[in-house]
Amino acid sequence: MGSTRRSFTDEYKANAVSLVLDDGHTIAETARNIDVHEMTLGKWVKKERDAREGQREPDAPLTETERVELDRLREENKEVKAENAHLQMQVSFAKKVATWFAKEQQ
């Protein structure tokens, strides 16, 4: 007993991908709603994302999602730099203390 493979029109795929990329629905949610396997829809979405990235100019304005990610990364970078500066101060202090103890031992 063999299974039949379903086929989808390009228009159907484009509408499904649009629900994810343009309307903000998740792949899992959309796949359940249209009765398509998550992996199948995920492949369609990846293919369209790659195609959109290829068409986009390097100097094009950021999308809302990219802007949010950029802001999150900038904030994370600022926190990491502050932590790094604090750790460098601790290392510098530890070196001074070690030098002072070494001089006292002589």
Rank of each mutant, 00 (worst) to 15 (best):
R6S: 13
F8H: 15
T9H: 09
D10I: 09
E11P: 00
E11Q: 14
K13F: 01
K13C: 03
A14K: 09
A14T: 09
N15S: 07
N15I: 01
N15V: 01
N15F: 03
V17P: 02
S18K: 14
S18E: 13
L19N: 10
L19G: 01
L19C: 12
L19F: 10
L21V: 06
L21M: 07
L21I: 10
D23K: 15
G24P: 02
G24K: 02
H25L: 15
H25N: 13
T26N: 04
A28Y: 07
E29T: 11
E29Y: 11
E29F: 10
T30P: 01
T30Y: 05
T30Q: 05
A31C: 09
R32F: 04
D35P: 00
V36N: 04
V36L: 07
H37C: 09
H37A: 15
E38W: 09
E38L: 08
M39L: 06
T40N: 08
T40P: 02
T40Q: 13
T40H: 05
G42S: 15
G42I: 00
K43N: 14
W44F: 06
W44L: 05
V45K: 09
K46W: 07
K46Y: 09
K47N: 11
K47H: 12
K47R: 15
E48C: 01
E48S: 04
E48M: 09
R49N: 09
R49C: 12
R49Q: 14
D50F: 03
A51P: 00
A51S: 10
R52D: 00
R52H: 04
R52W: 05
E53D: 07
Q55Y: 05
R56L: 09
E57W: 00
E57T: 04
P58Q: 08
A60Q: 13
A60N: 05
A60I: 03
P61K: 06
L62R: 10
L62N: 05
T65E: 13
E66K: 08
E66W: 04
R67M: 14
R67L: 15
R67G: 02
E69C: 05
E69G: 00
L70G: 00
D71A: 15
D71E: 15
R72W: 09
R72G: 03
R74A: 10
R74S: 07
E76N: 05
E76T: 06
N77R: 14
N77A: 12
K78L: 13
E79L: 14
V80G: 00
K81F: 13
K81M: 15
A82E: 10
E83P: 00
E83L: 10
N84F: 15
N84T: 11
N84H: 12
A85R: 12
L87W: 07
M89L: 11
M89A: 11
V91H: 01
V91A: 08
S92M: 06
S92T: 12
F93W: 05
A94S: 12
A94W: 02
A94C: 10
A94V: 01
K95M: 06
K96C: 02
K96D: 11
V97A: 13
V97T: 11
V97I: 14
A98I: 02
T99I: 05
T99K: 13
W100S: 05
W100M: 06
W100N: 00
F101V: 03
F101E: 12
F101T: 01
A102Q: 12
K103S: 10
E104W: 08
E104V: 01
